[in-house]
Design a protein around this nucleic acid. Structure first.
Lengths: 340, 340
DNA sequence: TGATTTTGCTAAAACGTTTTATATAATTGT
DNA sequence: ACAATTATATAAAACGTTTTAGCAAAATCA
């Protein structure tokens, strides 16, 4: 009751050295030739007093914290929370804990977060980066800790990536609409420089131009849901008569679009067809069900954590060697929202 | 480049003691009467080499890790990820980081998680407990770290709670259906001993009995979404002719129910009315929109983290004093799924 | 038997901080 | 001018591990 249990107090009580205890507890008894009886003595006592080593002290000494930082845009977005769950589960099995935060695409906040994680000597990073964070990430990579970037590509940052083929996905979804006979197809996205958004846009543009159609592009203000929904409503109000179909660059914009469409009394797909990037349970259940481009959440998570874990096993010098760029395929999920 | 920067290397370089540097860096220069020029010298150099203190060493010495453990049922559930976001944001402002995990209602896994967090010397806990974890939580509380329990009540565990008035909420929602003229009202829940589920059930039962109606209760297998949906379908198939309305004990069961209702070709609310506990974006957008009992996510999160932060400021002896039981009210959100 | 190797264990340094107790110099009071 | 106080800075212990280097006893070898 008096003194806290520690390897030192155990050593004192058993009349042996801390070294021995440490060896036993770390499974090095064999290797270090600790006699079986002493091993038993230690293990029995440790069991008896229910001793738990102090992970902080261990981390300080070893330089490993067994913690991975997960930095996403917003943990409350289904896409990210689903990834968070998968990653946590896999990390847990390898003895790693996850410490997370939401950037809300705020670069300054993200930089600060990274600094805090560095101070905590986190072993590795899985990051969904906001724009403008390149320099900080380069610096982070240089620190020797493995970094896996998710969802977005950062020009000039040499590290592991797990991405999806955004442009191709949107190209073929747009092509699908064209093949269905739609001609006036709009693309609604965020006014953002994030690579995944640009790629989706460019996929749309290519498909439109390849088929001699006219692009109709609307870029919404990124911050503020209410503001976005207002913009959406006024855009649709003005353009709905001339637009036959819409491709939304992400699911939450699509949700706003659906609200606007309902409010304006438009019918899907008769008045307007709809496709969304990033699937969502809502889309499956909606009437009519909304066609979408589903991201392989499990594969993304699995690749990210596997990549990180494999780097974690390596020497610091090999951590940044041969960076991988894994590009996964999406799944087009045709539903009722765009059948002529 | 050679040696890592540490307070010691700085001390050596500046020809002063580590004590001084520590005082300066911790804002104790005034209190400890470090001369202004020396303070400047330290700060300038620290800035120059961009020194970051080692949080592990600090935590080891101080016993504070500035980390809070968030243990929820499943971080990918919208309810929990929304809470996670709020909690993280507030904790961040107070200098705390969040380390999370999903229990999946697995008691053994949860016990193990708690042990790992104890080893990491986490400063406090916010827990959504699975059943059977009482003893472990009592033990955890006894360790002197503050513990806030969320969403569920644990008999015999003296600690802070943040809950909602489950029984009253379901009572009045059921009463609402009765007032609308519905008589054969079913309650579909999980076969679970979790307090929030039991309370919701008892709210339903009270309302039914108070109005001289006959309870119709269906308990589904907790684990396995597919299995649950199959059970739901077969239940509805058998009973749909005799049931006029259903109250679902939680949103994901309701989603399963909606699928089954659709599959059976039943109309809402004409053939069957629906109310769900726990609101969901899908419910607002569904056709018809689904009436629900919305939990005050922000208030839950805020109360939980505030409670924890206030305890964190206190001495270990006061941590468990005067435990709070905060019971928040839900909001009934009437929509089109139950208007006769 | 004496030299060598193997076995079994440990002393002590190191990880990078914070904090207590204390030393010295400068200032003030009388 | 001497004591008492205040200002400034530091030495050293402590937090609880891991790990390197090494010691003594026992076993093996020649």
């Amino acid at each position: 009751m008096g003194k806290k249990t520690s390897i030192t107090s155990i050593a004192k009580h058993l009349g042996i050295s801390t070294t021995t205890i440490s060896f036993v507890l770390n499974g090095k008894a064999q290797e270090k030739r600790i006699s079986d009886q002493l091993v038993k003595k230690v293990l029995d006592y440790v069991e008896e007093i229910d001793y738990k080593p102090n992970a902080l002290a261990r981390s300080l000494r070893t330089g490993k914290s067994n913690t991975i930082a997960l930095i996403v845009e917003d943990i409350s977005f289904p896409f990210f929370s689903a990834i968070a769950k998968e990653i946590e589960a896999k990390a847990y099995k390898s003895g790693y804990k996850i410490i997370y935060s939401s950037t809300e695409n705020d670069t300054a906040k993200t930089e600060e977060l990274i600094e805090i994680y560095q101070e905590k000597h986190v072993d590795g990073y899985i990051i969904v980066p906001p724009t403008g964070i390149q320099a900080k990430i380069v610096e982070l990579c240089a620190s020797g800790k493995p970094v896996v970037v998710l969802d977005r590509y950062l020009e000039g940052v040499q590290t592991d990536y797990v991405l999806v083929n955004n442009d191709e996905s949107v190209y073929s979804a747009t092509k699908y609409l064209i093949d269905q006979g739609y001609k006036n197809i709009a693309f609604i996205t965020l006014n953002s420089l994030q690579s995944q958004m640009l790629d989706r846009l460019s996929g749309y543009e290519k498909a439109i131009l390849d088929n001699n159609l006219t692009p109709i592009i609307q870029k919404l203000t990124p911050a503020g849901r209410l503001e976005r929904e207002k913009e959406l409503l006024s855009f649709l109000e003005k353009k709905c008569s001339s637009i036959e179909a819409i491709v939304f660059s992400t699911n939450y914009i699509c949700v706003g679009g659906l609200k606007a469409i309902k409010q304006l009394g438009l019918r899907i797909p008769e008045d307007i067809a709809v496709v969304s990037f990033d699937d969502y349970e809502l889309f499956e259940m909606y009437s009519p069900a909304i066609t979408s481009i589903a991201q392989p959440i499990e594969a993304i998570s699995e690749n990210a954590i596997n990549l990180l874990l494999s780097r974690l096993g390596k020497k610091a010098s090999e951590v940044s060697q041969n960076p991988q760029k894994i590009i996964l395929s999406t799944t087009f999920v045709p539903r009722d929202s765009c059948t002529k």
